[in-house]
């Protein structure tokens, strides 16, 4: 994939931790977060990333009352020979929906 075309940010939601309050949906400036159709197994509709358009601003993270329900990633540029430092699996968020 061409680096220039990638989104500036990426968003992960831990569907187990999310309680579906919807504050992130309201707060997201580019409006790329919605609520899931399906309930998680605690009975909440959880936040879902639309899949594209995240700017990495982090606002969803700070309005979210749960410590780890949302993780925001930001695009960084680095020399290719350093390789990929980050593979999209995040510690503690292994059960994330990949949005």
């Amino acid at each position: 994939m061409n680096a220039e075309k990638r989104d500036r940010g990426l968003l992960r939601v831990d569907v187990d931790e999310c309680k579906g309050c919807g504050l992130c949906v309201e707060a997201c400036p580019p409006k790329v977060i919605g609520m899931s159709e399906r309930l998680n197994h605690y009975g909440y509709r959880t936040a879902t990333y639309a899949g594209a358009g995240c700017t990495g601003c982090g606002i969803c993270f700070i309005v979210c009352p749960e410590p780890g329900a949302i993780t925001v990633l930001r695009a960084v540029k680095r020399p290719a020979d350093l390789g990929r430092r980050f593979d999209t699996a995040i510690a503690g968020a292994s059960e994330c929906t990949s949005n």
Binding site: A3, E4, R6, G9, L10, G56, G58, F61, I62, I70, T71, V72, L73, R74, A75, V76, K77, R78, P79, A80, R84, R85, F86, T88, I90
Partner: peptide, 9 residues
Amino acid sequence: LISDYEVSH
């Protein structure tokens, strides 16, 4: 340069 993601929040 390649683009990559790092955790910011």
